[in-house]
């Protein structure tokens, strides 16, 4: 058990306290803003991991509701009966009702134990988050990161035995329905500029103006010419960049 969490574990005997499970450099500080007791500090450097003092936490749960990473939880061991109450933020579809039984899972989604929902509370502004409190055996409590009804959906895939034959030809340009094979044909003819390749193969001459296929064409050309993407360049952009009715453009059907 890490130092901080030992302290959380101890403090949780007195009152519910937060458990902050945030280690990465994330440019973010709503937890600091949420805490009225000054228990969570991020400081000037937005990317530093929060520094948390469980001693100052009053277990209000605001940080749990507001953490964008849903990485803060509450632990409450006041019962002293070998059971703990853990609170997790919950925003899934479906309904949870007090009294029902639910899986408690760890951060990897592994089912830890079954628990009973003891409290549901809405917190966190106009579009709040549900804080779900469950009661579980206390030895699992520090690991709980979520609750869930359903089983893992692992197993929904099947192995394909035979050597899978991939279709070789498929469109590169969606609008003009030009296949990669066709592009290669023009490259074989010796075309070496993006513009010439575009005009001849029609890749990028469609409705969308080539915003999806341009990258692909650049790649294909770059492979042949050994030029970087910057050197290969971009399609020349011509108006209109969005389709416009001819009548509109001519000022007829306003």
């Amino acid at each position: 058990m890490k130092g901080d969490w030992e302290k959380v574990w101890e403090e949780a005997r007195e009152r519910p306290v937060a458990l902050v499970d945030c280690r990465q450099e994330i440019p973010c500080n709503p937890c600091e803003e949420a805490c009225r007791k000054g228990a969570i500090r991020v400081g000037e450097d937005l990317c530093s991991a929060p520094v948390y003092d469980p001693g100052r936490c009053d277990g209000c749960g605001r940080c749990v509701a507001l953490c964008p990473g849903m990485a803060i939880f509450l632990l409450d061991r006041r019962g002293g009966d070998g059971q703990a109450e853990v609170t997790v933020p919950w925003e899934m579809c479906g309904e949870i009702v007090e009294g029902e039984r639910i899986w408690a899972v760890d951060g990897k989604g592994k089912v830890l134990t079954e628990g009973k929902v003891v409290k549901i509370k809405w917190m966190g502004g106009r579009w709040p988050t549900r804080l779900v409190t469950i009661r579980i055996p206390e030895e699992r409590a520090l690991k709980v990161r979520g609750v869930r009804f359903r089983e893992n959906s692992v197993g929904s895939s099947e192995e394909v035995d035979q050597e899978y034959d991939l279709p070789e030809d498929y469109p590169v340009c969606r609008c003009e329905d030009v296949s990669r094979e066709e592009v290669l044909k023009f490259l074989k003819m010796g075309l070496r500029s993006l513009t010439a390749l575009r005009r001849s193969s029609r890749v990028g001459l469609g409705y969308c103006q080539g915003i999806y296929c341009q990258e692909q064409l650049r790649k294909e050309l770059g492979m042949v010419t050994r030029r970087s993407e910057e050197e290969t360049g971009m399609f020349k952009v011509r108006p209109p960049v969005r389709p416009v009715k001819l009548g509109r453009l001519g000022g007829v059907n306003g």
Partner: peptide, 8 residues
């Protein structure tokens, strides 16, 4: 972690 908790 959020998606893993949902069993994905």
């Amino acid at each position: 972690s959020r998606v893993r908790r949902e069993g994905v």
